[in-house]
């Protein structure tokens, strides 16, 4: 480390100057000791440095946390053996493309790597996005931090910073999310069924025997899917990470609100592509894809009557297409 080398050089120069100007034996002793100390430090540290290098080092972090939560980066020994490491320095490159964040993080530690050592850095969980952490090398230093052995790390880990939910000032009108009708569903089970007369080719499994006996005709139960009024959510992101965090927080609320109301949340992207979100797990996957600028469950919007609910910097706006 440059800082340690500079401090040591200053010490050495002081001892040297003292030796030049002071004629007593002590000045010579001090100079020799100052010269010997880094070598002693290296000799004492070398076994620990080598064993740490052989055992290897692992860097890890959370899979996903919410905005504003504590963000930890952990370091541990790969083989979990009790290895004392005099001084370890790992330089991490951290990138969050979604909020355009890029910075370096230094991890400095001394001690055994049997238990993980955590570095807290809440600046990284300040905004939404996927935090990618990469590091090519770690350096194991001696006690004085002058000599080192490099270790290849090839660390490439990421952590998703999920938005918190925030109630928007304007919520979508529930009456406008009503079911317009039903359409047959190709096979499978459904909460909604259409009843009709048996036609040739219908599966015997679908015959509603109770009703058939009542009406004395074969009645078939056909699985259907409701036709909702199309309700699109549009996210108007800006260049400001704080605003984007706010937009995503409101989107989370709206999505949850729609799903609880039984309607899918259709996120309207550019080029008339939409992504349908029906439950929390899909929402999480959608946000992950959003952070990485990848498509998620996309299809083209149909011609059904639609409403667009836009979430932007200045608030929410509902308009029809």
């Amino acid at each position: 480390m440059i800082k340690n080398i500079i401090i040591y050089l200053l010490l050495l120069i002081s001892a040297f100057v003292f030796n030049i100007f002071y004629f007593g034996w002590f000045s010579w002793f001090l100079l020799v000791l100052t010269i010997a100390v880094p070598l002693v430090s290296l000799i004492v540290s070398l076994p620990f440095m080598i064993s740490s290098t052989v055992n290897g080092i692992l860097v890890f972090t959370h899979d996903s946390i919410k905005v504003g939560d504590d963000f930890y980066v952990g370091v541990t020994g790969k083989k979990g053996k009790t290895v004392f490491c005099p001084r370890i320095k790992i330089k991490l490159s951290i990138e969050n493309e979604f909020c355009n964040l890029s910075e370096k993080l230094k991890i400095l530690y001394s001690g055994t790597l049997k238990k993980p050592f955590y570095t807290k850095n809440n600046r990284l969980s300040k905004h939404c996005g996927s935090v990618n952490i990469t590091a090519k090398y770690a350096k194991i230093y001696d006690f004085m931090g002058i000599f080192f052995i490099p270790i290849k790390l090839d660390c490439n880990i990421s952590c998703d910073i999920m938005p918190k939910t925030k109630k928007p000032s304007v919520l979508p009108d529930s009456s406008k999310i009503s079911i317009l009708g039903y359409k047959p569903k190709n096979g499978g089970f459904s909460d909604y069924y259409e009843l009709r007369q048996y036609q040739s080719g219908d599966s015997l499994k679908n015959i509603h025997w109770k009703l058939s006996s009542k009406y004395d005709d074969l009645i078939v139960r056909e699985p259907s899917t409701p036709i909702y009024r199309q309700f699109y959510v549009r996210l108007l992101f800006t260049q400001t990470p704080d605003t984007n965090d706010d937009i995503l927080a409101r989107f989370m609320y709206v999505c949850d609100y729609l799903n609880k109301g039984g309607a899918p949340c259709l996120v309207f992207n550019d080029g008339r592509e939409i992504s349908a979100i029906s439950n929390p797990s899909e929402l999480k996957e959608f946000i992950n894809a959003l952070y990485r600028n990848q498509p998620y469950n996309t299809h083209f919007a149909d011609s059904a009557p639609s409403l667009v609910y836009a979430i932007g910097e200045s608030g929410e706006e509902v308009s029809g297409i």
Binding site: F29, L30, L33, V37, S41, F84, P86, R87, L108, Y109, S110, G111, T112, F143, M144, G145
Partner: peptide
């Protein structure tokens, strides 16, 4: 005294980062 000061200087990092050991 000088030896102790040197020892403190060398171990200052360990003492700060990992008091337990």
């Amino acid at each position: 005294a000088v030896s102790l000061l040197f020892a403190l200087y060398i171990t200052s990092f360990v003492r700060r980062k990992n008091p337990a050991q």
